[in-house]
Design a protein around this nucleic acid. Structure first.
Lengths: 259, 259
DNA sequence: GCGACCGGTCGACAATGCTGAACGGCATCG
DNA sequence: CGATGCCGTTCAGCATTGTCGACCGGTCGC
């Protein structure tokens, strides 16, 4: 029986449902959305609640995600090998570039941010660790898709929503873009995800040469580009690629690889 | 049948096992630790892996926590009402106190950090969101235990490991300490958890008056205390209590409550 | 105060997942 | 270099376990 455990699968579906979209959901909602009997959903929810993965609002009886997920998510970060090795390099990159630095890994058709170094000034910033970035419009996403065939397939298969006027959505256009990224070894995002924000990213490879993550800097488009509508600042590109190369080397891979 | 779903319970146990202690575990280890048949553990692990909650090292075959947990943990933060309301106040507290600020909620016999504002200088700091603090030796833990009977019971029931020479471990001592905290409305941690670090914390109450969280500042003991072996800086205590009171008020509760 | 809705419960059925044993690959050790 | 253990994985049969539909009791809104 190489199938999956049904109840665990359903529990995961419930968690995913609670994690995306509505903040709180009622039992009936959850059950009907997933096509389950109310009693079935209730049993799973009761167990998840008991384990801390789900909490129930005492007043309204509605369900939401639980604190245990935050704790375990943090444990995941402790485990993360790539992240541990990248810590020191990304710190340096943030200092030298003066911009905030992200480390992302491919996850479920997107890029999951596993590390985030704040821009080294006193401005108010929010932690983005645990957040997702789109594959088709983020620098890290394109860097990963260009070097990992699996991610590339995901990118081409999924729909690519338009976030700004500069978002590239056409399949042909995306494919050409990835070709360029593969040739030059780095990717950019010039106001393709958010107005006014630009990023530069480069992939990190493990010892077998597969792209396991990407390092990127993000900042105001005025600081990332040389001039209005100009090219990305070469020094920034060099710094990002240096960082990505350093992490790759640290992972024990890429001795013979160029990125 | 008010029991729990067995397989979901076991899946949660596996996740908790992977989250605490060993970074990676083999199937046999996991199964024997939890008293499960290998095949049973394998089925659950396969499902968890498929859902992204667990990852398997391709080389060694060992299992570790998966990225989906980080994503969901982040979603939990988005949901968190207390955290959302506290954001602006904790920012102000960090600025005015010049120290790093934490917001914690009681969770599984400890304090789970749900928000963390960096000390407003350029020093290198790591995000502690998702980390746990002990009830008996942290300022937030004591603040929560003093005002929430459930947490208080947990604190008295659990064993209280000694972290430094100043950690209070005796049951009688802890009870007296909590009494003082309840009277004065705030708690401190003077090198009881880590050498050189001190904290001050005050509880946040919801509209029904129960302590749902705690706000605390943490810094070098030399900056928190007025003098060597002196009292905690009154201005710092006032700032923390102001912040906690503000959040409580924001939650719609505590109009008649003093903390 | 009536109705509709919601969360929760109950008991029966059978589908589901658990169990013990056996397989194949890998590394180690003799 | 073959034997031996260890480990992750698979298999098939059995009964435990979770699922289902119908049924409560409370609450909100009309």
């Amino acid at each position: 029986m190489s199938g999956s455990i049904q109840s665990v699968e359903r529990a995961a579906a419930i968690l995913r449902l609670l994690g995306g979209g509505e903040r709180r959901m009622g039992l009936t909602d959850i059950a009907s959305t997933l096509g389950l009997a109310k009693a079935t959903a209730h049993g799973i929810l009761r167990t998840l609640q008991q384990e801390g993965f789900v909490e129930q609002d005492a007043a309204t009886g509605r369900y939401q995600l639980g604190a245990e997920l935050l704790r375990l998510g943090n444990s995941y970060l402790d485990i993360h090998d790539l992240r541990a090795r990248a810590l020191v390099w990304t710190d340096d990159l943030a200092r030298s570039s003066g911009e905030s630095v992200h480390l992302g890994v491919p996850h479920q058709g997107g890029v999951l941010v596993v590390h985030h170094v704040f821009r080294p000034d006193d401005s108010r910033q929010v932690v983005e660790v645990g957040a997702m970035q789109p594959l088709h419009s983020s620098a890290m996403g394109k860097a990963l898709a260009a070097f990992d065939p699996v991610v590339r397939t995901q990118l081409l298969a999924a729909d690519r929503p338009r976030f700004t006027a500069r978002t590239v959505t056409g399949r042909r256009d995306v494919e050409d873009l990835l070709e360029v990224v593969r040739e030059q070894g780095w990717a950019s995002d010039l106001e393709e995800s958010w107005e006014g924000l630009a990023s530069v990213a480069s992939p990190v490879h493990d010892r077998r040469g597969v792209a396991v993550g990407a390092v990127g800097v993000t900042g105001a488009v005025e600081r990332v580009r040389e001039s209005r509508d100009g090219a990305v600042r070469p020094a920034l590109v060099a710094a990002v690629r240096d960082c990505a190369r350093a992490v790759t080397r640290d992972l024990g891979g890429g001795r013979f690889r160029i990125n």
